[in-house]
Each structure stands twice: as structure tokens, then as C-alpha cells.
Design a protein around this nucleic acid. Structure first.
Lengths: 164, 164
DNA sequence: GATCCGATGCAATAGATTTGCATGAATATT
DNA sequence: AATATTCATGCAAATCTATTGCATCGGATC
């Protein structure tokens, strides 16, 4: 497997995101969504990769084997994020990335973004704990989700292997 | 002061971001940057607001009193983020927001995004603690920064005051 | 004064995402 | 069965955000 950013699924730090156990059709049905071929393809690509992908990456991956429109991919992604099947991860000014939303097979986990090569990776859920107790006590709104993003320089780039 | 999202500086949860103490000219000089009028305007607008603003908001605010080009605003923002005077905060798919970077008057703090009205607020630094120890121990890259984002429904929207 | 450089403006471009409108398949209604 | 409704999708165009190329201008330097 080639070295480089997430497009080629070479997560460096954990395999939290990758999934062989999720039944995508069932996940869709549970959310009251028709399990269309396109939706299944999107879920398979996202779930089969161990780091979050952009809409364009998902589109190109599916396109290699199936005809699909890019707008359709956007619409499916939006729908699945709304229904909490996928989660959207955003980084500075660039394209959003999509990964599996937390479910029985996917614990919530922090993400790492390399400031040098822009690679995104999933970190293992245990590596960073957040004190939610205190937050919920002091915060007067309703907390739905806490996202932790670690920025820094990845192992690859530290070794000098990162591309500028 | 009107209710609504950040554009009108009505932070609900803390005033961590707002600053009457920062000397912007000095901050610029310290970073070896010329303290031009435009740069000062950008810093004043960002520092004078208690929640992060988009480039467009900053541009429009300055434009009310000074002629300035939007591209200039983008360039200044990029420069100031590079030099660690400002920090860029990104949310789902939309424009980046800019706030004061951590310095002697600004502790790093989490941000809150209302999933209903899209308002962004700064939370107080103490309200959420993160165990960096464990992270640095287990992470094989170099950590530069940890960003915490809380998503949920803000006080306003819970009261029914939020606009859809 | 000639030259260089950095900051800015303006126009054009790029990239990501969204919207409007049409179609076609499946389902519900009459 | 014929019609209406709904929903997923495709295609084209529009929108929004950000970046790039090129010209200018003022101040500092030679």
C-alpha cells in the first residue's frame, strides 16, 4: 500500500474507522432510508476506508466501478450525515471529509491533521480523554457532540517523507 | 445588543475572545510585520469581537468605515494565522472563522457551534479539560495544537429564540 | 533620481458545494 | 387500469469561498 494521505487508506495511528462488521443496508433501513445501490456504495467506500474521505474521493472511488453523479454523492453524504450514519469532519478552508459516525462498531475518536502534508487520520478513542462532566455542568445549552482535532506533524513528515 | 449569531458580538458563554488589553501594533511588530492600517483594522475587528468571524464579516465590518479590498482581507488573515496572531476555526463545509490566537491575554478555549442556528461561540477555557499527557505519550507524531469543538443547541434556540 | 520591495487593488480563476429543473421508477389513489 | 404522488437521480447552472496573476504605488535603499 502506497504512502501518502488518506486517499489510499493508509492510516498511521489506528484502524478505528475501518469496518468489516457494519451492515450498511441495515443501518440505512434503521434510519428509514431506502437502501439504494448508490447509498450502499457510498457507505461501503466510507466504511471500507480507515481514514475520512472527501466527497471527491468518494465520487472517484465509486466511479471506477459504477456510473454515479457527483451531485448524487453530495446529496447522499448530506442525507447520511443528517441521519447520523456518517460524520462530517472539516479542516481549514478545504473540502469536508466523511467517516463513519459513532455506532456500535465505531467509538467516537479524535482526528489528527498534519499541518505539513494535510493528511487526516483517525486517532484511537482512548488516546485522548475529555472531561465531559464539567462541560455539561457549566454549559447552559444542550451538548450533542464533542469533536477533538489534533493538529501537528505526522510521523511520515517528521521522517522527512512528507510531501510539501 | 441584538440577539443572533456572532456577527453582532453577543457571545453567550464567555468573553474569552474579546480583548481590550492587546496592543495590536505591538503584536504585529513582535512578529516582524509592518503595522499597516489594514492589518490593524483586521486585528481590531477580530479582537474586538467576542466570537470568531468569517473573512466576509471582517471585510464588511471594516468596509463600513474604511475602503478595503476583500482579497486584502484574505491575505492579511492568512498572514496573521501563519504568524500565530490569529487562529482559524472551521466548521461544517462553510466559511472559516477567525479569532485571536492564544496569547498572554487569550487562553486557548473550546468553541461551541449551534446545530440549529449555526451560531459560533467561545467557551470558557476551564469548562473542558483534555488529557494531553496521555495523547503525547501515545502519539508518534508531533502535536502542535488541540482544538475542541462542542456541537449542540444553544441557550437561545432551546428557549425557542433561535431562527431556523 | 533609479531601483527594489512589500502592501494593496482589481480581474480572473479555481475548487467545493448547492440549487433548479427534468426524468424515470416505484408506490399510492381514484 | 389510469392518474397522481413521491423519491432518487442526473445534468446544467449558479453560488460561495478562497486563491492567483498582474499592475500600481509608496517608502526604503542604493
Amino acid at each position: 500500500m502506497a504512502a501518502g494521505p488518506c486517499t489510499v487508506a493508509n492510516n498511521l495511528y489506528c484502524d478505528q474507522a475501518m469496518c468489516e462488521q457494519c451492515n450498511y443496508a441495515r443501518l440505512l433501513k434503521n434510519a428509514d432510508l431506502e437502501a439504494t445501490a448508490n447509498r450502499l456504495h457510498v457507505m461501503e467506500v466510507v466504511g471500507g476506508n480507515n481514514c475520512p474521505l472527501t466527497a471527491a474521493e468518494i465520487f472517484h472511488t465509486i466511479s471506477r466501478t459504477q456510473p454515479i453523479n457527483q451531485v448524487t454523492v453530495y446529496r447522499i453524504l448530506e442525507l447520511l450525515v443528517e441521519q447520523n450514519l456518517l460524520e462530517r469532519i472539516t479542516i481549514g478552508g478545504r473540502a469536508a471529509h466523511y467517516g463513519m459516525a459513532p455506532n456500535e462498531h465505531h467509538a467516537p475518536h479524535p482526528h489528527f491533521i498534519c499541518t505539513r502534508c494535510a493528511a487526516i487520520d483517525c486517532l484511537s478513542p482512548e488516546c485522548l480523554s475529555v472531561d465531559m462532566e464539567n462541560l455539561r455542568k457549566t454549559f447552559s445549552g444542550e451538548v450533542e457532540r464533542v469533536e477533538v482535532r489534533v493538529e501537528g506533524i505526522c510521523r511520515n513528515c517528521l521522517k522527512g517523507g512528507g510531501k510539501k
